[in-house]
Design a protein around this nucleic acid. Structure first.
Lengths: 148, 148
DNA sequence: TAGATCGGTACGCATGTGCTTATCGTGTGC
DNA sequence: GCACACGATAAGCACATGCGTACCGATCTA
């Protein structure tokens, strides 16, 4: 039985992810965002969040480390951080209109570039299926990958 | 024009890569390999390499940091490191038969798990197209992504 | 009411990695 | 033949990140 002829999934995906991330960085900085700040804006766009620890967990960050990021975003008026009246220990996190505007602008720039990339190298059918499959795989519960 | 409804490519790919990597780690350790050691074995399988700096660059590692990895692999008989007779400054790097055996065993374990994952969550057609597109994108020259 | 718990914050430690410099043996060009 | 360039190696600095601890204020519970 010959060795499998294809490269490992991770060996293809991880460098691709790195390259895409590297390509994103200048676009983010154009909008005054770091990667962590952008992650925060993306996450809060879905819906406001109760508690910063939940946010950290959702974006895979360290809860003691996003504090500065949140403080900075709040200072710049991109997010609001208010104490929950029901339990004043927790902070309610939400995008401000300005935060929403910045997030949309940054994401448009990024996705435009991505769309151009895909259009240039994949057929429309490939592109559709690829995005479909990617969406499927990237939304699997974490333990699906680690325990089978 | 509404905001694009899909997630960023990088936002899907990077966490997926992380998850796949995390799932690989225990398998690698079963074969006595670290991720860096495995990267080395994979790269050397293609063809032997002249110079360690070239290897480091090929696998995206720091050239001053793979030295210990290579020394360990050599000590365990998985790779050979000989001085090039034509230029004794450079080291010729190659897999030993034992190194090839270990590499094959580790990769089989990893790809079996990957195949099971894909089979479970994608249709055969999706799977084929996905791997095709992934192979295409992951072999693009680096500047294709960073400069368009 | 007192003690336990919880979210947020700050701080220190360890680690992994990149980047720089220095050294040594080897090669090459003047 | 000699100065310089180059590959491999070692050692140090810098930074980002993860992890643990400690503290504070607010809340819950016995």
């Amino acid at each position: 039985m010959p060795a499998t002829p294809r490269r490992d999934l991770a060996a293809m995906i991880v460098p691709l992810g790195r390259a895409l991330t590297a390509a994103e960085l200048p676009l983010l900085h154009d909008h005054g965002l770091t990667m962590w700040a952008y992650s925060v804006l993306l996450r809060l766009d879905d819906r406001p969040l109760r508690s910063q620890a939940a946010l950290a967990e959702a974006i895979g960050a360290d809860k003691t480390r996003i504090i500065d990021v949140l403080a900075d975003l709040e200072e710049r008026g991109l997010i609001s951080r208010t104490s929950d009246p029901a339990d004043r220990r927790v902070r309610l996190l939400a995008l401000t209109p300005e935060g929403h505007r910045v997030r949309t602008a940054a994401q448009s720039a990024i996705q435009s570039r991505e769309d151009r990339l895909l259009a240039r190298h994949l057929t429309p059918a490939q592109r559709t299926t690829f995005l479909e499959a990617l969406a499927t795989l990237s939304t699997l519960p974490p333990d699906t990958l680690t325990t089978p």
